[in-house]
Design a protein around this nucleic acid. Structure first.
Length: 327
RNA sequence: GCCGAGGUAGCUCAGUCGGUAGAGCAGGGGACUGAAAAUCCCCGUGUCGGCAGUUCAAUUCUGUCCCUCGGCA
């Protein structure tokens, strides 16, 4: 990837990122690149709130709906795809505009990931066995056993996570089994593995109390747009409820409704609750992680002005890709 | 009007053999290095319906009033 300048638009779910991004794309000859871990799934455009066909016709869009339900995407895969796509957009003579709410992917793209190799099936199997053994010793919280063992091989990382955090415990052991090196050691080697992108990060801020009714309305709109049919078809296609794509908020709730274990009102209630909690997590993340210029929602005009000024000065500093459009 | 059961956290309730109280749900805050729309952690003061009585001490016992829900009129 060659160096160049990009614009990133982040914020909690349901704050109007899509609309703002289209404005920027039109003004600056942009192309929009998905920065959202769920909007990649082809069969769930409504539930994951992907831009509509009409919205996508405004300018080129990338990395939306290009994966099937069984595909597992990771931060690593995303970074690779995003870098290639950014390059493609440069070649097109357009401004890359990344839009989405997956904070971890953005950080991985801009600041790199630890160069940890792929975990092989053998290491994964060993971790599964480890959990089974631990379960025999402590049925209620086997994580305690593993966490104690992790203290021996990687006290630094163990000190950072809770014994109930199964996902991170597993990851720590997988990496250790695969590489013989503690995860915290790998983390020290984190660096962007290519030319650094020069990024303006714009955030659309929101008040959670005010956001809630908007999210409720969005759920109603999704149902009107056919979210239930979409879920039914996706379930039939995947043939199982635990396909990777179905971790997206709304899927478990609708699946429970479809199998009759809860009614639609309850499904909607849970869907809203989980969406709101997710929005909270996103705000918590973005508040700390990146240098972000925040704007209240509906201030698209101010976003546009800041973006223009930034692009002009960036251009003067010579930070544009050779093929990027001049301002 | 009579009989019965209740009135404790936003909701559903537990509990205090008298020493001013705690669960679930809801809600709030935080962490985050390859599953991240994931995974995980932390947070509970409320006239214990009102008033009076007994008592060193009442949300707890007694009386009375109010309210709710059943049943009978």
């Amino acid at each position: 990837m060659t160096a160049g300048s990009i614009i990133v638009l982040v914020g909690a779910t349901g704050t109007g990122k899509t609309a703002a991004s289209l404005t920027l794309a039109k003004e600056f000859q942009g192309a929009i690149i998905n920065l959202d871990s769920r909007q990649i799934y082809r069969d769930l455009p409504i539930i994951t709130a992907q831009p509509t066909q009409q919205e996508q016709s405004v300018c080129p869009h990338f990395l939306y709906g290009h994966m099937d339900l069984e595909s597992k995407v990771t931060a690593g895969i995303f970074v690779e795809e995003a870098r290639q796509t950014v390059d493609t957009v440069f070649q097109m003579g357009r401004l890359p505009i990344l839009v989405g709410g997956t904070g971890m992917y953005l950080r991985a793209l801009l600041h790199g990931l630890a160069p940890i190799p792929q975990i092989g099936s053998e290491a994964k199997a060993r971790v599964v066995t480890l959990w089974e053994e631990a379960q025999k010793l402590d049925y209620v919280s086997p994580g305690r056993i593993l966490h104690e063992r992790l203290q021996d091989i990687d006290p630094v990382f163990a000190g950072r996570i809770h014994f109930n955090d199964k996902q991170r415990l597993s990851r720590a052991f997988e990496v250790f089994f695969e590489t013989g090196k503690p995860l915290s050691e790998w983390h020290k080697q984190t660096a962007p593995d290519g030319p650094r992108l020069n990024a303006l990060i714009l955030g659309i801020d929101t008040d959670l109390v005010e956001l809630k009714p908007r999210l409720a309305r969005r759920i109603d709109l999704m149902l009107e747009a056919g979210a239930l049919d979409e879920m039914r078809r996706a379930l039939q296609k995947a043939g199982r409820r635990d396909a990777p794509a179905f971790t997206g908020i709304g899927c478990p709730e609708l699946l429970s409704y479809l199998d009759g274990s809860i009614d639609l009102d309850e499904a909607k209630r849970l869907w809203l609750k989980n969406t709101r909690a997710y929005a909270k997590r996103q705000l918590t993340w973005f508040r700390i992680q990146e240098h972000i210029d925040w704007f209240p929602k509906n201030h698209v005009e101010n976003i546009r002005l800041l973006a223009r000024n930034w692009l002009v000065s960036t251009q003067h500093k010579g930070l544009f890709h050779p093929q990027q459009p001049r301002i």
